[in-house]
Design a protein around this nucleic acid. Structure first.
Lengths: 195, 195, 195, 195
DNA sequence: GATGAATGAGCTTTCATTCAT
DNA sequence: AATGAATGAAAGCTCATTCAT
């Protein structure tokens, strides 16, 4: 029954994702995850070779999830300015509805180099996501809306900015909800990138 | 000899800062730090109550260090546009010359909530730094150069952007050195914040 | 189908024998054996009650195998001196052609007392083999060729010597192949035992 | 206090040696050893890097112990025939008084290849012992008492024979005490090796 | 007979912290 | 202030065995 196995693997990914994002990679133990799933520790290892491998599968999972959301926006017949806002909106919505996704990205993936060293070189484990940002940017340049600057500078702005805001929100030091900032921020970003 | 104690405390902070930034908080052990200092493990505990307390002292130390650099820029009689560039420059220079400072900020402080939970609520442990960003921003607004938007939105942009670039640089996926991007980035930021 | 069951049981014994001899009893897992046989772990347990029981059945199997080889030699109408050489020859041939047999004997059976404690007391699990050595010895005494010493002293010489040589060969520290030593060794043994 | 550390290391070696010899390498746990010493598990690791390393240090210790006993015999101004008997005697006395030494050799070292693979290649970890056997043999040849056969053939005889007897004794299937066989066995060996 | 997911006890090893010296 | 041996809880991971299908 390969389908059932797939299903259980995803259950594990989901539970581990939430715990890693909430408590951190090193402070979440395999028994923590197993008991959240009412599953035995030993059985966890029938689905993942090691804690590190699990962490890597999770970031892939997130990359695919966010990448597909971005792809949908990229495919809409709208201006780059409108896409910019939609992306910010999507990012903040994800941060609200599935905060573990963004938190994992920021707090587990970006911060524990040693875990992702082997197997996630460069952006190998987040390629689906990065690719879509690249498409957004290149189409904006092609259509004449965006300045043709170095992609990584633009990428750093976009992702750093959004990540920074989500972080501040997580620290509960933003006076308003994330959604409150959507207009300001997408305008800031667009202003920074436009021709 | 309280002076000498202060000195040794700083030596510990410096060594721990480097190791935590390089290897991560959980993968750096107290014996690691002690042996880097050719000091006994037991003696370390004469200067710090616990590994967590050491981590908190380090972030304070960084906050004061970066805060004073920012203060110097804030006090210069130049336009906000010029300040913006100088801040970007200073940040990237720090990232080049003392990478452990920025890395610690990004990879230890921002990512290990559980460690800083008690004692660093809100921005308590980085107040010196945040205060100077606030001053930069408020003076820019007062002088009429910057739009009077929510401070945290501006802060998130500034810090998220710069942090994102340093992260990309650390991952060795930037095609150029950080200094290459100073103009682009300070322009992007200024464009995003200006009136 | 009791016959088919016997067959599969022997397949398991053969595979387990090879793996135990090669990798050791404790470092060979039941899944190792099962996957070598392309059989499920659960099904293995339809044929053997436990890993220990499997180990015991294997040593019996080896005892019967070697015992029958010895019996054939014992039944030949030749002198004890000639038999001695034939036994050495047979032992070394087995060590060359089916090294797992001798290795299992030396490295699994002789070394893991705790496994064979219950059920293989004394020489219970190698009786077929020991019995034939006994016959060889007693006939040699009866015929006047061998000195009538304590059987176990003779047995220890014979088996210890051969085992020691096979061990040295396995360690790859013998400068020559085992067959090179057949004459020397059978002469040494015969000299030691003769009247 | 390096002396104290040395002392404790030897205590650990002695306790581990006994337990490994008695219960086997894999069935003896580090907690077993620690509690036999009334020492904490963690502290054990201040003296040995791993269970495997401990096993390797033990075999070295035994090699040195037996080597020095052999050396004393080798240095006596007696015939090779007399030395032969003394060696058998010494070996059996050790097997009686410190059975863990011989048992470890036979049941742990000889049988768990995988443990000693790295660091004990060839006879690297038993060189002290083997060297003395070599000296015994070569001097016997030089003095004209022993036949000049391949050393390893002689070594296999000697050690295999003695090991086999100790094994049979351990299995409690020898009708007499080991010492009972000293004359028989040393005569057998001498007859086998003499010119 | 056959499967392989599931269990859970138990292993080796690590490490923050303490404390006698 | 300084040492580093000692502690012991807890981690990641393994594997013989079971059992629902």
């Amino acid at each position: 029954m390969p389908h059932k196995k797939q299903t259980k693997k995803e259950l594990i990914i989901q539970a581990a994702l939430e715990l890693f994002a909430l408590k951190g990679f090193y402070t979440t133990t395999i028994p923590d995850i197993a008991s959240a799933l009412k599953m035995s520790v030993g059985n966890m290892y029938n689905y993942f070779k090691s804690k590190d491998m699990l962490a890597k599968e999770i970031i892939k999972y997130i990359s695919i999830y966010l990448g597909s959301k971005l792809q949908a926006i990229n495919e809409e017949p709208i201006t780059t300015k409108e896409k910019t806002k939609k992306i910010v909106q999507m990012y903040f919505e994800t941060a609200s509805n599935r905060p573990e996704m963004i938190d994992y990205f920021l707090r587990v993936y970006l911060s524990n180099r040693e875990v992702f060293k082997d197997g996630c070189e460069g952006m190998a484990c987040v390629s689906e996501f990065v690719t879509e940002v690249m498409i957004y940017f290149e189409e904006g340049v092609k259509s004449g809306e965006l300045r043709d600057q170095d992609f990584f500078s633009a990428f750093g702005l976009f992702m750093g900015y959004l990540g920074g805001m989500v972080f501040l929100n997580g620290e509960k030091i933003l006076p308003n909800e994330l959604s409150f900032y959507i207009d300001d921020i997408s305008e800031n970003i667009y202003n920074a990138l436009k021709k």
